[in-house]
């Protein structure tokens, strides 16, 4: 790995084949919310094999994610996905469920585990436990601040992967919010949740993806990348499981360039980047909880550029 890793998320083979991944170092394959998501890698063994091969053929690391909240009926499929990932040479498994972490640890002891944001890592003590189960990195729970993340990485000796752009996960459900709308709209499951469906209340907006709720605003840490690099962070994610290939490509390019500049000690932001970000943003930008504020707020100097994205 170079001085940093930029990765993204892709739910199915179609989206992978349509995506230009030249900005990325690694890709997470699979949709964590729903088994019925259109051709979810986690349900289609052949697609997963092909996806891993195609990612690796591009010189990237292939990570396979897993379900955020699996009940027993999903575990056989999880097992198959884990076996497929191991056999196809996946570089790591992402786990959001601690039972799945245990499965990986017990059955694939050499397989690195990346702990996902739904695993609820809030403290160094929690991270230490997961490290003993083979976790080599963790995505902190989304509602903790950068100061708290630093306390965990220092206390537990395990690096954090930070989402730096994209809609932030806010919750996961056991049933689908959107299925009842199938009758009213031309779109049906399993593509219904890929539509631009937002829940609004006054100035607040959240994105519904059926079994999950995402922030309506796109988390954006572009202007804060130099600070993240200076703090020692090296692994960054652009969350794009429900985004278009164009989003994945163009946002990825912006962040790759900005990270390279930050690593070289140049903290400037390419002004044209804001225009591109604006084109891919439906309801504005936020920083999530990184600065200890309400998740939908934006903290930074680029207030005008950010306001223009709203």
């Amino acid at each position: 790995m170079g001085s940093f890793e930029l990765n993204t998320t892709i739910s199915n083979l179609r989206s992978l084949l349509e995506s230009d991944l030249s900005a990325y170092d690694a890709v997470y394959l699979g949709n964590i919310y729903c088994r019925l998501f259109e051709d979810n890698f986690l349900e289609r063994t052949d697609d997963l094999k092909e996806g891993i091969a195609r990612v690796k053929d591009q010189g990237l690391r292939a990570y396979v994610t897993s379900y955020a909240a699996p009940r027993n009926d999903a575990l056989p499929k999880v097992q198959i996905a884990l076996e497929t990932a191991a056999a196809a040479g996946a570089d790591a498994i992402e786990v959001h469920n601690l039972g799945v972490l245990r499965m990986v640890h017990e059955q694939f002891p050499g397989m690195p585990a990346h702990v996902g944001g739904f695993a609820n890592v809030y403290t160094d003590a929690g991270a230490e436990v997961l490290k003993e189960y083979g976790a080599v990195r963790f995505t902190p729970n989304y509602e903790i601040s950068l100061d708290e993340v630093e306390s965990i990485t220092r206390g537990a000796g395990i690096p954090a992967e930070l989402q730096v752009h994209g809609k932030m996960p806010l919750g996961v459900s056991d049933y689908c919010f959107l299925l009842e709308y199938e009758q009213h709209w031309p779109e049906k499951c399993p593509v219904l949740c890929q539509k631009q469906l937002f829940l609004k209340q006054g100035d607040w907006a959240m994105r519904s993806v059926g079994k999950g709720v995402l922030s309506g605003k796109d988390l954006c840490m572009l202007e804060h990348l130099p600070a993240l690099i200076a703090a020692g962070h090296t692994m960054f994610r652009i969350e794009a499981a429900y985004e278009t290939p164009a989003y994945r490509f163009q946002i990825g390019q912006i962040y790759r360039a900005a990270l390279e500049r930050a690593v070289a000690g140049d903290g400037t932001v390419d002004e044209s980047a804001w225009q591109v970000i604006r084109e891919h943003t439906a309801v504005g930008l936020c920083n999530g909880f990184y600065f200890g504020r309400t998740g939908s707020e934006y903290v930074g100097k680029r207030v005008e550029a950010v306001a223009a994205c709203s």
Binding site: G171, V172, S173, T294, G295
Partner: peptide, 20 residues
Amino acid sequence: VQEFIQLGKCWMPSYVHFAA
């Protein structure tokens, strides 16, 4: 009460109201 989001896996409120 089974709420829509699973218990322990919801931070919607702090996305909207953390400062309050």
